[in-house]
Design a protein around this nucleic acid. Structure first.
Lengths: 167, 167
DNA sequence: ATAAACTTTCAATAATTATTGAAAGTTTAA
DNA sequence: TTAAACTTTCAATAATTATTGAAAGTTTAT
C-alpha cells in the first residue's frame, strides 16, 4: 500500500465511522483529510481532494467549526480562508465526548428523569415503567459522567493507573 | 404526565436515541416497548402498539435477536410467538458494547493498523499520515478495551471504587 | 393430506438525509 | 465605488435508508 492508497483508505474508513461519533460522512472525511495534512487547506483544495461541491464543503466546515474541531487559519497575504483541525487525538476525543453529551445524552437523561418521576398509581405497569426508566436513567447518567471525566483528565496519574488496571 | 403519556414519551425518546447506540428507530422502539412491558408480547401486540407493519416488526425483531437483546418466549398452548427483552440494564449495556465493538470498532482498528503500517518513504506527508493514524489507532484501541472491560465487570469492587472516584 | 394460523421475505414505495450548483452575500484591493 | 475573489445560502435533486404489504413459506392441528 503506497501513500495515496493509504490516504484514500483512511479517509473513507474514517468517513464511514462518522456515524459512530455522531457526524455525517462528508464532515468526517473533511476532518480526516485535515487530520493527516501537513498544512492548512483551502476550501478549493478540500473540494478537489474529496470531490465534493463548494456548498457541501462550506456547510460541513461550518459544522466542524461549530463542534470546535476545526478552526480557520488566516494566512498573511492570502485572500482565501484556510482550515486546520485539532491534531491531538486526546483533545479531539475530549471535544467529541463533550459535544455528544451536550447534544444527545443530556436531553435523554432529562426525559428519562421526567418519565421515571410520574406518579405511582399502584398498577403493575406503572411500577414497571418507573422502575425500568429509573434504571436506564441511572445507567445513562453514570456512563455519561464517567466518559466525560475520563476524557477530561489529561493523561495524569489516575488515567495511567486505570489504563494499567484495565489493559 | 399519566402512564400513557409517559410510555409514549419514553418509547419515542428511546427510539430517536437509537442512532447513538447504532440501531434504527423501529428496532429501538420495539426494544423500548418490551423493556417496560410486564409480560412477553406477540408480534400482533407490538404492531398494534407501535403502529408499524408486520414486515417491519418481523425484520426488526429478527435483528434484535441477532444482537442478543431480545429472545423468543414460547407460551404453552399458544400458537403465536412471544418476545421479551433483557431487563437488566447492566447486561443490556454489556451486550450493546460488545456487539458494537465487534461490528464497528474492530474493523476500524484493523484499517487504522494497516494504514499506519505503510512503509515510511521519508516524505513529510507519509510521516504525518503514519503518525496521526497510529495515534488514532492507539486511542481507538484503548477506548474500546476500556469500555469493554468496564461494561464486562459486574458491579464488583473495582467498578464501585471507580464510581466513587469519578462521581 | 389439508387447511388454518402464523412468520418471513422482498420488490415497490415512502421518508429521510446528503449533495449540488447557482444566485446572493461579503470582503478586499485598487 | 467598482470589480474581482471569495464564501454562504438554499431550493432542487440525488442518494440512502426505512417501511409497507402481499405472496411465499412454515408449522401445527385435525
Amino acid at each position: 500500500m503506497n501513500y495515496e492508497e493509504a490516504k484514500i483508505k483512511f479517509i473513507s474508513t474514517w468517513g464511514s465511522l462518522g456515524t459512530l461519533w455522531g457526524i455525517n460522512k462528508a464532515m468526517a472525511q473533511i476532518q480526516a483529510l485535515l487530520f493527516i495534512s501537513t498544512k492548512p487547506l483551502s476550501m478549493e483544495e478540500i473540494m478537489e481532494e474529496l470531490q465534493i461541491s463548494r456548498g457541501n464543503t462550506s456547510m460541513n466546515l461550518r459544522q466542524l467549526m461549530d463542534w470546535g474541531i476545526v478552526t480557520k487559519e488566516l494566512i498573511p497575504g492570502e485572500r482565501k480562508e484556510y482550515f486546520t483541525t485539532e491534531k491531538d487525538v486526546q483533545e479531539l476525543a475530549r471535544i467529541v465526548a463533550k459535544e455528544r453529551s451536550r447534544r444527545e445524552i443530556q436531553p435523554v437523561i432529562k426525559v428519562l428523569n421526567e418519565v421515571s418521576s410520574i406518579e405511582d398509581d399502584g398498577t403493575e405497569k406503572t411500577k414497571e415503567l418507573i422502575k425500568q426508566t429509573k434504571a436506564l436513567h441511572d445507567l445513562t447518567e453514570t456512563a455519561d459522567a464517567m466518559i466525560n471525566k475520563l476524557v477530561n483528565q489529561q493523561q495524569n496519574w489516575i488515567t495511567k493507573s486505570l489504563l494499567k488496571l484495565f489493559t
